[in-house]
Protein backbone atom coordinates (compact mmCIF):
# COMPACT_ATOMS: atom_id res chain seq x y z
CA UNK A 1 0.00 0.00 0.00
CA UNK A 2 1.74 3.15 -1.19
CA UNK A 3 0.47 6.67 -1.74
CA UNK A 4 2.98 8.82 -3.61
CA UNK A 5 3.25 12.39 -4.77
CA UNK A 6 5.91 13.26 -7.28
CA UNK A 7 6.99 16.90 -7.65
CA UNK A 8 3.45 18.01 -6.91
CA UNK A 9 3.05 21.71 -7.64
CA UNK A 10 0.13 24.11 -7.68
CA UNK A 11 0.58 27.56 -9.03
CA UNK A 12 -2.09 30.20 -9.23
CA UNK A 13 -1.12 33.18 -11.36
CA UNK A 14 2.28 34.08 -9.97
CA UNK A 15 1.75 32.51 -6.56
CA UNK A 16 3.15 29.03 -5.94
CA UNK A 17 0.89 27.49 -3.31
CA UNK A 18 2.41 24.00 -3.26
CA UNK A 19 5.98 23.70 -4.38
CA UNK A 20 7.36 20.42 -5.78
CA UNK A 21 6.28 18.09 -3.00
CA UNK A 22 7.49 14.51 -3.34
CA UNK A 23 6.69 11.96 -0.66
CA UNK A 24 5.62 8.38 -0.16
CA UNK A 25 3.11 7.37 2.48
CA UNK A 26 2.53 3.81 3.66
CA UNK A 27 0.14 2.31 6.23
CA UNK A 28 -0.07 4.40 9.37
CA UNK A 29 -1.14 7.81 10.64
CA UNK A 30 0.59 10.88 9.21
CA UNK A 31 0.14 14.29 10.75
CA UNK A 32 0.39 17.32 8.48
CA UNK A 33 1.44 20.42 10.37
CA UNK A 34 1.69 23.95 9.05
CA UNK A 35 0.53 27.48 9.71
CA UNK A 36 -2.39 29.08 7.87
CA UNK A 37 -1.50 29.54 4.23
CA UNK A 38 1.23 26.89 4.32
CA UNK A 39 -0.53 25.04 1.49
CA UNK A 40 -1.91 22.10 3.53
CA UNK A 41 -5.46 22.26 2.20
CA UNK A 42 -4.28 22.73 -1.39
CA UNK A 43 -1.96 19.72 -1.05
CA UNK A 44 -4.78 17.64 0.43
CA UNK A 45 -7.19 18.72 -2.29
CA UNK A 46 -4.74 17.67 -4.97
CA UNK A 47 -4.27 14.33 -3.21
CA UNK A 48 -8.04 13.88 -3.32
CA UNK A 49 -8.32 14.78 -7.00
CA UNK A 50 -10.36 17.88 -6.23
CA UNK A 51 -7.75 20.29 -7.55
CA UNK A 52 -5.66 19.58 -10.62
CA UNK A 53 -1.94 20.05 -10.03
CA UNK A 54 -0.04 22.50 -12.20
CA UNK A 55 2.60 19.79 -12.49
CA UNK A 56 3.48 16.51 -10.82
CA UNK A 57 1.35 13.52 -10.02
CA UNK A 58 -0.39 11.63 -7.24
CA UNK A 59 -0.70 7.85 -7.37
CA UNK A 60 -1.95 5.11 -5.10
CA UNK A 61 -0.39 1.71 -5.82
CA UNK A 62 0.35 3.06 -9.30
CA UNK A 63 -3.25 4.24 -9.93
CA UNK A 64 -3.48 7.91 -10.89
CA UNK A 65 -5.54 10.30 -8.75
CA UNK A 66 -7.87 11.05 -11.68
CA UNK A 67 -8.90 7.41 -11.96
CA UNK A 68 -12.19 6.12 -10.55
CA UNK A 69 -10.33 3.30 -8.73
CA UNK A 70 -8.30 5.88 -6.81
CA UNK A 71 -11.44 7.64 -5.60
CA UNK A 72 -12.89 4.24 -4.75
CA UNK A 73 -10.06 3.76 -2.25
CA UNK A 74 -10.37 7.27 -0.82
CA UNK A 75 -12.20 8.63 2.20
CA UNK A 76 -12.08 12.40 2.58
CA UNK A 77 -13.34 14.82 5.12
CA UNK A 78 -12.90 18.46 4.08
CA UNK A 79 -12.32 21.30 6.47
CA UNK A 80 -15.71 22.80 5.66
CA UNK A 81 -18.52 20.89 4.08
CA UNK A 82 -22.20 21.47 3.49
CA UNK A 83 -25.22 19.21 3.22
CA UNK A 84 -28.56 19.30 1.51
CA UNK A 85 -30.84 21.06 4.02
CA UNK A 86 -33.65 18.53 3.70
CA UNK A 87 -31.38 15.62 4.68
CA UNK A 88 -31.25 13.92 8.04
CA UNK A 89 -28.08 12.12 9.19
CA UNK A 90 -29.17 8.74 7.82
CA UNK A 91 -30.23 10.17 4.45
CA UNK A 92 -26.97 12.09 4.17
CA UNK A 93 -24.90 8.96 4.76
CA UNK A 94 -27.03 6.87 2.38
CA UNK A 95 -26.65 9.55 -0.30
CA UNK A 96 -22.88 9.66 0.17
CA UNK A 97 -22.82 5.86 0.16
CA UNK A 98 -24.52 5.81 -3.26
CA UNK A 99 -21.90 8.25 -4.57
CA UNK A 100 -19.17 6.02 -3.18
CA UNK A 101 -20.52 3.12 -5.23
CA UNK A 102 -22.28 1.21 -2.46
CA UNK A 103 -25.54 -0.55 -3.23
CA UNK A 104 -28.61 0.97 -1.59
CA UNK A 105 -28.87 -1.90 0.91
CA UNK A 106 -25.18 -1.86 1.78
CA UNK A 107 -25.20 1.96 2.11
CA UNK A 108 -28.01 1.66 4.66
CA UNK A 109 -26.26 -1.08 6.66
CA UNK A 110 -22.95 0.78 6.65
CA UNK A 111 -24.64 4.05 7.62
CA UNK A 112 -26.18 2.37 10.67
CA UNK A 113 -22.79 0.94 11.70
CA UNK A 114 -21.04 4.27 11.33
CA UNK A 115 -23.74 6.29 13.09
CA UNK A 116 -23.21 3.98 16.02
CA UNK A 117 -19.44 4.36 15.79
CA UNK A 118 -19.68 8.16 15.97
CA UNK A 119 -22.48 8.06 18.58
CA UNK A 120 -25.15 9.60 16.38
CA UNK A 121 -27.63 6.69 16.34
CA UNK A 122 -30.10 8.57 18.55
CA UNK A 123 -30.25 11.47 16.10
CA UNK A 124 -30.13 9.42 12.88
CA UNK A 125 -33.55 10.74 11.87
CA UNK A 126 -32.92 14.37 12.83
CA UNK A 127 -32.24 17.06 10.26
CA UNK A 128 -28.54 17.95 10.00
CA UNK A 129 -29.35 21.65 10.30
CA UNK A 130 -30.30 21.01 13.95
CA UNK A 131 -26.86 19.49 14.72
CA UNK A 132 -24.13 21.18 16.73
CA UNK A 133 -20.68 21.78 15.20
CA UNK A 134 -19.26 18.69 16.90
CA UNK A 135 -22.11 16.48 15.67
CA UNK A 136 -21.63 17.70 12.10
CA UNK A 137 -17.92 16.99 12.44
CA UNK A 138 -18.63 13.43 13.60
CA UNK A 139 -21.04 12.96 10.69
CA UNK A 140 -18.25 14.15 8.37
CA UNK A 141 -15.93 11.51 9.81
CA UNK A 142 -18.62 8.85 9.35
CA UNK A 143 -19.14 9.69 5.67
CA UNK A 144 -15.39 9.46 5.06
CA UNK A 145 -15.44 5.88 6.35
CA UNK A 146 -18.47 4.68 4.35
CA UNK A 147 -16.52 2.87 1.64
CA UNK A 148 -14.01 1.39 4.11
CA UNK A 149 -11.27 3.43 2.41
CA UNK A 150 -7.62 2.46 2.12
CA UNK A 151 -6.64 6.13 2.11
CA UNK A 152 -8.24 8.39 4.68
CA UNK A 153 -7.60 12.12 4.40
CA UNK A 154 -8.94 14.37 7.13
CA UNK A 155 -8.63 18.14 7.01
CA UNK A 156 -8.95 19.70 10.48
CA UNK A 157 -11.19 16.89 11.74
CA UNK A 158 -11.07 17.75 15.43
CA UNK A 159 -12.13 21.37 15.05
CA UNK A 160 -15.33 21.86 17.04
CA UNK A 161 -15.03 18.65 19.05
CA UNK A 162 -15.06 18.86 22.82
CA UNK A 163 -12.13 17.28 24.75
CA UNK A 164 -14.02 14.03 25.41
CA UNK A 165 -14.97 13.65 21.74
CA UNK A 166 -11.44 14.53 20.71
CA UNK A 167 -9.97 11.75 22.84
CA UNK A 168 -12.48 9.29 21.36
CA UNK A 169 -11.66 10.50 17.89
CA UNK A 170 -7.93 10.09 18.49
CA UNK A 171 -8.31 6.45 19.48
CA UNK A 172 -10.55 5.84 16.47
CA UNK A 173 -7.93 7.33 14.12
CA UNK A 174 -5.18 5.26 15.76
CA UNK A 175 -7.19 2.09 15.15
CA UNK A 176 -7.87 3.07 11.55
CA UNK A 177 -4.19 3.69 10.95
CA UNK A 178 -3.46 -0.01 11.51
CA UNK A 179 -4.70 -1.00 8.06
CA UNK A 180 -5.01 2.33 6.22
CA UNK A 181 -3.00 5.33 5.16
CA UNK A 182 -4.37 8.16 7.30
CA UNK A 183 -3.35 11.74 6.58
CA UNK A 184 -4.47 14.17 9.22
CA UNK A 185 -4.10 17.91 8.85
CA UNK A 186 -4.61 20.00 11.95
CA UNK A 187 -3.42 22.98 13.92
CA UNK A 188 -3.86 21.08 17.15
CA UNK A 189 -0.34 19.92 17.85
CA UNK A 190 -1.38 17.65 20.74
CA UNK A 191 -3.61 15.61 18.39
CA UNK A 192 -0.71 14.91 16.08
CA UNK A 193 1.66 14.31 18.97
CA UNK A 194 -0.57 11.61 20.42
CA UNK A 195 -1.63 9.69 17.32
CA UNK A 196 0.61 10.41 14.33
CA UNK A 197 3.54 8.02 13.93
CA UNK A 198 4.88 10.25 11.17
CA UNK A 199 4.86 14.01 10.98
CA UNK A 200 5.03 16.23 7.91
CA UNK A 201 5.83 19.91 8.36
CA UNK A 202 4.84 22.35 5.63
CA UNK A 203 5.84 25.96 5.25
CA UNK A 204 5.40 28.30 2.28
CA UNK A 205 4.12 25.46 0.10
CA UNK A 206 7.18 23.28 0.70
CA UNK A 207 7.65 20.18 2.80
CA UNK A 208 10.19 21.23 5.43
CA UNK A 209 10.52 17.97 7.36
CA UNK A 210 9.17 14.45 7.41
CA UNK A 211 9.85 12.00 10.19
CA UNK A 212 8.78 10.43 13.46
CA UNK A 213 8.07 12.54 16.54
CA UNK A 214 11.56 11.76 17.87
CA UNK A 215 13.22 12.70 14.59
CA UNK A 216 11.27 15.93 14.36
CA UNK A 217 11.88 17.03 17.94
CA UNK A 218 15.58 16.13 17.55
CA UNK A 219 15.75 19.03 15.06
CA UNK A 220 15.64 21.52 17.93
CA UNK A 221 17.09 19.39 20.69
CA UNK A 222 19.35 21.54 22.85
CA UNK A 223 17.74 24.74 21.55
CA UNK A 224 14.82 24.94 23.99
CA UNK A 225 15.53 26.91 27.14
CA UNK A 226 13.59 27.88 30.22
CA UNK A 227 14.59 30.90 32.29
CA UNK A 228 13.24 32.78 35.26
CA UNK A 229 13.85 36.52 34.82
CA UNK A 230 12.83 39.96 35.99
CA UNK A 231 10.65 42.14 33.75
CA UNK A 232 13.43 44.07 31.97
CA UNK A 233 15.46 41.01 31.13
CA UNK A 234 12.34 39.13 29.98
CA UNK A 235 11.33 41.99 27.67
CA UNK A 236 14.80 41.98 26.12
CA UNK A 237 14.54 38.27 25.37
CA UNK A 238 10.98 38.19 23.95
CA UNK A 239 11.95 40.83 21.40
CA UNK A 240 14.87 38.69 20.31
CA UNK A 241 13.71 35.05 20.29
CA UNK A 242 10.52 33.09 19.49
CA UNK A 243 8.72 32.63 22.82
CA UNK A 244 6.99 29.29 23.35
CA UNK A 245 5.54 29.99 26.74
CA UNK A 246 5.39 32.88 29.16
CA UNK A 247 4.17 32.72 32.76
CA UNK A 248 4.20 35.34 35.50
CA UNK A 249 5.21 34.29 38.99
CA UNK A 250 4.86 37.21 41.41
CA UNK A 251 7.45 39.76 40.20
CA UNK A 252 9.32 37.23 38.05
CA UNK A 253 8.63 35.96 34.50
CA UNK A 254 9.12 32.35 33.51
CA UNK A 255 10.05 32.12 29.83
CA UNK A 256 10.33 29.12 27.54
CA UNK A 257 12.02 29.98 24.27
CA UNK A 258 13.89 28.54 21.33
CA UNK A 259 17.29 29.84 20.34
CA UNK A 260 20.55 28.58 18.94
CA UNK A 261 22.58 29.31 22.09
CA UNK A 262 21.95 29.88 25.78
CA UNK A 263 19.97 33.13 25.91
CA UNK A 264 20.99 34.26 29.38
CA UNK A 265 22.84 33.21 32.47
CA UNK A 266 20.68 30.80 34.44
CA UNK A 267 18.80 29.52 31.40
CA UNK A 268 18.13 25.78 31.67
CA UNK A 269 17.97 23.43 28.73
CA UNK A 270 14.54 21.70 28.36
CA UNK A 271 13.39 18.65 26.41
CA UNK A 272 11.87 19.69 23.07
CA UNK A 273 8.23 18.93 22.28
CA UNK A 274 6.34 19.06 18.98
CA UNK A 275 4.79 22.34 20.03
CA UNK A 276 8.28 23.78 20.42
CA UNK A 277 9.12 22.63 16.89
CA UNK A 278 5.90 24.14 15.55
CA UNK A 279 6.54 27.48 17.22
CA UNK A 280 10.19 27.44 16.23
CA UNK A 281 9.22 27.20 12.57
CA UNK A 282 6.03 29.24 12.52
CA UNK A 283 6.26 31.96 15.16
CA UNK A 284 7.71 35.33 14.32
CA UNK A 285 9.90 37.45 16.52
CA UNK A 286 8.50 40.88 17.25
CA UNK A 287 11.45 43.26 17.94
CA UNK A 288 9.05 45.71 19.65
CA UNK A 289 7.43 43.13 21.92
CA UNK A 290 6.63 44.34 25.46
CA UNK A 291 5.24 42.61 28.52
CA UNK A 292 1.81 43.73 29.74
Amino acid sequence: MELSTDCLTKQYDKKIVVDRISMTLNKGVYGLLGANGAGKTTLIRMMCGILKPTSGEVTFNGVDVTHEDYRDALGYMPQFFGYYPEFNAMEFLCYMGCLKGLTKKRARERSKELLELVSLTDVAGSKIKTFSGGMKQRLGIAQALLNNPKILILDEPTAGLDPKERVRFRSLISQLGEDKIVLLSTHIVSDIESIAANILIMKGGRLLHKGTLEEITALIEGKVFECNLDRTAAEALISKYPVINLRYQQDRTLLRLVCEEKPCVGAVNAAATLEDVYLYYFSEVNPNAKLF
Partner: peptide, 22 residues
Amino acid sequence: MRSTSCHMAELEMSCRYSLTDV
Protein backbone atom coordinates in the same frame (compact mmCIF):
# COMPACT_ATOMS: atom_id res chain seq x y z
CA MET B 1 -26.41 23.60 -9.28
CA ARG B 2 -27.58 22.21 -5.95
CA SER B 3 -24.20 20.71 -5.07
CA THR B 4 -22.44 24.06 -5.37
CA SER B 5 -25.12 26.07 -3.62
CA CYS B 6 -25.26 23.65 -0.66
CA HIS B 7 -21.44 23.39 -0.48
CA MET B 8 -21.51 19.67 -1.25
CA ALA B 9 -19.31 19.98 -4.34
CA GLU B 10 -16.01 19.24 -2.57
CA LEU B 11 -17.36 16.11 -0.88
CA GLU B 12 -18.99 14.88 -4.08
CA MET B 13 -15.82 15.44 -6.10
CA SER B 14 -13.90 13.02 -3.87
CA CYS B 15 -16.37 10.16 -4.36
CA ARG B 16 -16.17 7.28 -6.82
CA TYR B 17 -19.07 8.80 -8.77
CA SER B 18 -17.79 12.34 -8.71
CA LEU B 19 -19.51 15.69 -9.10
CA THR B 20 -19.25 15.41 -12.89
CA ASP B 21 -21.14 12.10 -12.75
CA VAL B 22 -23.72 13.64 -10.41
